[in-house]
Amino acid sequence: MPTLSLKVNGKAVSGEVEGRTLLVEFLRDQLGLTGTHVGCDTSQCGTCVVHVDGKAVKSCTVLAASCAGASVTTIEGLAANGKLHPMQQAFHEEHGLQCGFCTPGMIMAAVDIVKRNGKKVDEETIRRELSGNLCRCTGYHNIVKAVQSGAANM
């Protein structure tokens, strides 16, 4: 099996992966980073969103081997120096989560949405951009509010 070396949450890591190993499997099973979830098998639900080289990807649709040398950020690596990222804080403040299963993917997607659309991203854009992230608990109302408020503080 080939050895994969990359950076995850700022730390250099390496591990043996099969060609078919998905990034999400590598993160969850080999690195124990279980904050990234698997909610479907068709790249629809978005619970597995992480950042690869600063861009949001669905880690269930990325081969681990293709991330050689890349820098991956997962939900576990979003808070810096013990301080929550403004988007994490906003999900808490706005009650943007209930069961919490979609939350890591939502937050990672939200950070990316703001990076691409700016701090003043409007509600319609947020709703459209969240098409790839499913939540069954909140009705999205407070998630959209959280993304807006997190954006303002980023």
Partner: peptide, 19 residues
């Protein structure tokens, strides 16, 4: 009151069965 349980979910430390 803001939820006490949020912290583990927003930091990826929730512990679901598959974890």
């Amino acid at each position: 009151v803001k939820r006490k349980e949020d912290n583990r979910f927003i930091t990826g430390k929730g512990r679901y069965t598959d974890d």
